[in-house]
Design a protein around this nucleic acid. Structure first.
Length: 144
DNA sequence: TCAGCGGCCCGGC
DNA sequence: CGCCGGGCCGCTG
């Protein structure tokens, strides 16, 4: 399917990035948006869920794995960290990792059940994928 | 404000 | 092969 007309990118909804002082988080939906599939936020979650564990005995086994992909910086649109339905084990790791990099995670003192990060402060919603070529349209090979 | 519902797709019975 | 549920999202009551 086509990636839909980018002209109607409702991405503008992203909170205006204020002063982020270090760690940066984004949302499943935003990732999906950057990839060109604004309605597949859930699939993004599925992908992160299936992200393989890094295998020290065979480093090249996976190109992407839980140690070279900052999966913990992806939370839901409201900054919440989903329980995943595994009793909180996954969410707990999620929270630990975020705090490990200095991001403030609120938990209201009730464990990770209601964990969330303030997206006004930690949110990061780039308009394009960092490191990606701007666009293929600037094929200015006139240099030669 | 908050809960509910539909939409989007895919993965697991 | 069909149905149910999911690491979501945004729009309605």
């Amino acid at each position: 399917m086509k990636a839909a007309a980018s002209s109607k990118s409702s991405l503008q909804a992203c909170h205006a990035p204020k002063k982020h002082s270090g760690g940066r988080c984004t949302s499943y939906g935003h990732i999906a948006l950057l990839l060109g599939y604004p309605q597949r936020a859930r699939q993004v979650g599925v992908c992160l869920k299936h992200l393989p564990s890094f295998d020290p005995t065979d480093p090249d086994r996976h190109f992407y794995h839980d140690q070279n992909v900052p999966w913990q910086r992806v939370v839901n649109a409201k900054g919440g960290i989903s329980p995943r339905g595994d009793g909180g084990a996954g969410a707990s790791r999620h929270v630990q990792k975020l705090r490990g990099e200095g991001i403030v995670v609120n938990d209201q003192g009730n464990g990770i059940a209601e964990a969330w990060v303030d997206m006004e402060r930690w949110g990061w919603f780039p308009t394009r994928i960092p490191g990606e070529e701007s666009e293929p349209d600037d094929e200015d090979d006139t240099t030669s």
